[in-house]
């Protein structure tokens, strides 16, 4: 599990804690940095969220090092979350009209009824 391994005299839990605290600072700070577009803030929030979620699940919840069946158990509902997010996308008008050009090559817009 690597919990007994020391890095600069401290165990992995300590460093995970430090990373979580720093990334939370970054998360809160991103909203207050002037000049950042909303998309940049969005990207920071999602990126920070992924790093924090990984840190908590992998180290604090011991998924890294525990038998893989626990990771599989934890990932199982993620399938449903992905399906729900897909449903959100499909049920939103932007899922057709708001797609970027690179996502709709040779698309026949005559089929789109507004």
């Amino acid at each position: 599990m690597g919990e007994h391994k020391l890095y600069a005299g401290k165990d992995i839990y300590f460093w995970n804690f430090v990373v979580l605290m720093l990334f939370t600072l970054l998360e809160v700070g991103a909203v207050y940095v002037s000049g950042l577009s909303v998309y940049t803030v969005w990207a920071i929030l999602i990126g920070v969220g992924i790093v924090k979620a990984y840190g908590i699940a992998a180290f604090f919840m011991h998924l890294k090092g525990d038998p893989f069946i626990y990771t599989r158990t934890a990932l199982f509902p993620v399938l449903f979350v992905a399906l729900m997010l897909w449903g959100i996308g499909l049920s939103n008008p932007d899922s057709i009209l708001g797609l970027p050009d690179w996502c709709t090559p040779n698309y026949d817009w005559a089929y789109v009824i507004e």
């Binding site: 998360e27 929030l45 920070v48 969220g49 924090k52 979620a53 908590i56 699940a57 604090f60 919840m61």
Partner: peptide, 12 residues
């Protein structure tokens, strides 16, 4: 930790 994890999504 799960409660913390849920907050990681809820807070932002």
């Amino acid at each position: 930790h799960f409660v913390d994890l849920a907050w990681v999504a809820i807070f932002p």
